[in-house]
Design a protein around this nucleic acid. Structure first.
Length: 480
RNA sequence: GAGGGCGUAGCUCAGUUAGGCAGAGCAACGGACUUUUAAUCCGUAGGUCCUGGGUUCGAUCCCCAGCGCCCUCACCA
């Protein structure tokens, strides 16, 4: 079975190139200058012989001469082929080129009669003959499914897609840089775990043949990073993938990138400071501003960000107060929230918050003082044993980050694991070795988890997580 | 998992008032053109109208089932 169906006219040109003794799939082409630089520094470079390479995006054939636009990931420029200049043989080779092909060129950089910055080609090399047509030059590639399934097409035909992913890389670099400058050490902990702990989510299961044991893809690195704290690594972070076997939506992909940070002797208070500075640093690097556009409006990241107790927002938006079990159950029923009659009211309140309050939180806000019963890994608040020292950072109507003052009392941790509310699937798996590590002593600490994909969504003004993940999970096409 | 929307040429999209020969632009092919800018002009070709059933003299269109993508909800971060 043929894997692709090449265009007949392109195959013909491929054969013609070979007949002319030209390899349609060239090799290394050293010394190519970025096209963006040629355009930006044109005044200086004008008149020089330039060597560069790119993909043909457009061809304007004039008979004994032709113009093409070529682009690379920095920009695009016009190139000009003339029979007079190239000679018959090279000109015939040039006639085998089409939009989508990748070529290397060498020639004088100058202005045309109409004032367009142009390379007047003297030599050129065919680097890759495309056998499939690129998307239409004017409208580009619009079809969502094609864009996600064939990201290579999406990247070279929709410039803002490339820019988004370049920015993603910049953001992650800024995050690393920020933490490393403050003395945090980057570590890697297991992606495959025998107990999938550290969060409440359904894991992916797999199996190790040699050991003949079940394994889980991790849902969070938290319990391993805290083992490192217990071992004396005082400031650690990890940027890596988590896997959760849950639904897919514009805010959820089964694998997503998480930053987790732990600081010995810190607390959720120190994590708030750190988070605020970290996000602002990334925003300045990626956007050059703390006011970032969001759809029709914009989000103001200027610190300090307000801190609002969970129950204060619940009362403001929903009129619900802590301890009003019947009122909470009633609203949960009205909004068809799962477990309205059976679940713990704190859990219902948390679900109502996500359902009814979250969308209102556009500018950044630290929601603080969550119920302890739904925070099994967080230390209780001094003077209020029912409240956890936990915050969640919200912006753009999304939860970006949770953070805790980490619980370091092993007996209390054991109790809290056993007392968790919710159904079996929602409760965290109990990691015995982690509790043992606490038993040998872990310093009090602040811990943060920040969803990198969602941060990128905010800083690049993208509405869907699929726009910031290069290859989001899709159902495989029929026949695959 | 539930509801809604969409699926037509390589790409972007029309279209079927109310069932009656399948359309445009771009890309392609042949021709003209040695400074064009979505080049232009003349000509040509291009289809599983998502898939499978049903109704009908006749279905791309109506009905049923299925598949995929998008949106909303549920689950979750």
């Amino acid at each position: 079975m043929a894997l692709i169906e090449p265009e007949e006219f392109r195959l013909n040109k491929l054969r013609e190139l070979r007949r002319l003794g030209v390899d349609p799939y060239g090799r290394e082409f050293p010394g190519a200058r970025p096209l963006g630089e040629l355009v930006e520094r044109f005044e200086k470079l004008q008149g020089e012989t330039i060597r560069t390479a790119g993909r043909i995006t457009n061809k304007r054939d004039m008979g004994r001469a032709s113009f093409m636009d070529i682009k690379d990931w920095t920009g695009s420029i016009q190139v000009f082929f003339q029979q007079k200049r190239l000679g018959d043989e090279k000109f015939t080779i040039h006639q085998q080129l089409d939009a989508g092909d990748i070529i290397g060129v060498e020639g004088e950089l100058a202005l045309t009669r109409t004032g367009e910055k142009t390379i007047f080609v003297g030599e050129f090399t065919v680097l890759a003959k495309a056998l499939l047509n690129p998307p239409e030059k004017w409208h580009g590639l619009r079809d969502q499914e094609m864009r996600y399934r064939h990201r290579s097409l999406d990247l070279f035909s929709n410039d803002e897609v490339l820019q988004t992913f370049l920015k993603r890389s910049l953001i992650i670099r800024a995050v690393r840089e920020f933490l490393q400058e403050r003395g945090f050490v980057e570590v890697e902990t297991p992606m495959m775990q025998t107990v999938a702990g550290g969060a409440a989510a359904r894991p992916f299961r797999t199996h190790h043949n040699a050991l003949d044991i079940p394994l889980y893809l991790r849902i969070a690195p938290e319990l391993y990073l805290k083992r490192l704290l217990a071992g004396g690594m005082e400031k650690v972070f990890e940027i890596n993938r988590n896997f959760r076997n849950e639904g897919i939506s514009s805010q959820h992909n089964p694998e997503f990138t998480m930053l987790e940070v732990y600081e010995a002797y810190g607390s959720y208070e120190t994590m708030m400071e750190l988070t605020q500075e970290l996000v602002c640093h990334a925003a300045r690097r990626a956007c050059g501003s703390l006011e970032v556009p969001r759809g029709e409006t914009e989000i103001d990241l200027t610190p300090p960000w307000p801190r609002r107790p969970f129950w204060e927002l619940m009362e403001q938006h929903l009129g619900l107060r802590r301890g009003e079990e019947e009122a909470i159950r009633h609203m949960a029923e009205e909004t068809q929230t799962q477990g309205a009659r059976t679940e713990h009211p704190d859990l219902l309140a948390y679900r109502l918050f996500e359902k009814q309050v979250e969308d209102n939180l556009q500018d950044p806000v630290f929601v603080i003082e969550y119920p302890k019963s739904i925070s099994p890994l967080a230390k209780a608040k001094k003077g209020d044993p029912e409240v956890a020292e936990r915050f969640e950072l919200y912006m753009a109507g999304m939860e970006l980050a949770p953070a805790y003052t980490e619980l370091n009392d092993p007996l209390e941790q054991e109790r809290r694991f056993l007392e968790q509310v919710g159904t079996e699937e929602e409760r965290q798996q109990i990691d015995r070795e982690f509790v043992q590590a606490l038993g040998w002593g872990m310093p009090p600490a602040g811990g943060l988890g920040l969803g990198i994909d969602r941060l990128v969504m905010v800083l690049t003004n993208r509405p869907s997580i699929r726009d910031v993940i290069l290859f989001p999970l899709l159902r495989p096409p029929e026949g695959a």
